[in-house]
Design a protein around this nucleic acid. Structure first.
Lengths: 238, 238
DNA sequence: TTAACTTTAGGTTAAAATAAGCTTAACCCA
DNA sequence: TGGGTTAAGCTTATTTTAACCTAAAGTTAA
């Protein structure tokens, strides 16, 4: 399967825990996810699931609702108590979509569901969608970048240069933030567009240059350097 | 249109198949893509699309979702079965972005979508972005080559010689990077042209020599050696 | 075997051409 | 009205071309 939109990281960097008491379902999940390159763990009951989850801290847990002993709902509730797992996404595996909606009412803390019977293609596209969502949701960007004599603060959306506040517009801020998030690294115009303007760009031509200009105007020429034919980078020159 | 980022190859080397049952939409697509220099093929229904796709093996297929007989989703599914087309990108043409996101698109194996109504500029920038994405999908190049007293860093696009920064222009950098990527190996002029100037080179002359000269000027004579009648190699001589 | 000549590949330099980015001002919305 | 975008002319660095130079290797013949 090569034609699904790319994830922010390669599949091998995602850990998925699949939990089901039925051996063959577990098999299907394991096979398909592994083939795709994910790091897969499996558990065949709720208790085992919790033990393994604590250990590997998966990014995603796929949990069958119907299980003997500790059922999916209860397992999910317990998982939700665990602090280390607070950014883990839990999805239910269910035969009926209504089932999920009913259960959502229990407030067990699941994020989504996947329908049974499992169709590999659909399973994977769902998983991809969920994982993409994680990335964009929990904003793991640094709230504050402190570099040279600049402080770039995401919380307050403000920038100070040696203590003096510099007022930046939103796009300017995002651009500066992006470049400064990895000083020295060259960001191509492509990368910049994708990061700041999004993929469904409304078409741009000299826009980036103009924003760079504004930044240099407000901060001074010494922070952002042009790498002709390649892109821009944050690098204090003077 | 001068302000779209360059592709790795000239537009004429990309084959695009546009599929729509509405004559005028097909017209718009065809006109705009052709004007841009792409090799364009058109089909007005799913069956025709599959037939033509098998024949020309396009790089990109633009597929309207709503079509009589074989609709876009089903067409896409069938296209995805065809082995020869496994590296072809399929994008849907849709009036509503949600329509695509309703997994229908993902499920069927589409890679992206383009919104209707078609705005030429947006269309083209999207196409360019998609085509560029194909190429850059697997950029397995080392981000950093550390050799003798040189550090060649792709990420920052900089070269340092025993700690001192050496400023190189893009082509110079690429040339050095290429040679240094396999020290001792002789690269023929042909190989160098293909790697750095691309297949559709229109440029031949003393150009390579001139770039080698610049590199030797900036780095010192001792890094690049000439193998007469064959090519150049990276090899520290002194 | 080697001197004299020829060919070929590559080196060097400066000038010309082009591409990429800069800048300013105008425009267009929310 | 300010933030964001576009357009247009300008500037500059990079890249290519062209013309000429040099050195190595190939050829021939005494």
């Amino acid at each position: 399967m090569d034609n699904i939109l790319p994830l922010p990281m390669s599949p091998s960097q995602y850990k998925i825990l699949a939990v089901d008491d039925e051996e063959d379902i577990l098999e299907i999940l394991d096979y398909n996810l592994r083939k795709e390159g994910f790091e897969v763990h499996t558990a065949s009951n709720g208790e085992e699931a919790i033990r393994i989850a604590k250990e590997v801290i998966p990014d995603l847990i796929i949990l069958d609702i119907m299980m003997p002993k500790l059922d999916g709902i209860e397992t999910c509730r317990q998982l939700r108590q665990i602090n280390k797992l607070k950014s883990t996404v839990v999805v239910f595996l269910t035969a009926r979509s209504e089932e999920f909606l009913e259960i959502a009412g229990f407030n067990a803390g699941a994020d989504d569901y996947i329908a049974k019977p499992i169709k590999p293609r659909a399973l994977l596209s769902r998983i991809y969608a969920i994982l993409r969502r994680i990335e964009s949701k929990d904003d793991n960007r640094e709230p504050r970048i402190d570099i040279d004599d600049l402080v770039i603060d995401r919380e307050t959306f403000s920038v100070t240069k040696s203590g003096d506040v510099v007022v930046l517009a939103k796009k300017e801020f995002e651009l500066l933030y992006l470049l400064a998030s990895k000083p020295g690294k060259v960001f191509t115009r492509d990368m910049i567009l994708e990061q700041i303007w999004g993929t469904d760009v409304v078409v741009i031509n000299r826009t980036i240059d103009v924003h760079i200009r504004k930044l240099r105007e407000k901060l001074g020429e010494e922070y952002i350097s042009t790498v002709k034919g390649v892109g821009y980078k944050f690098e204090k020159t003077a």
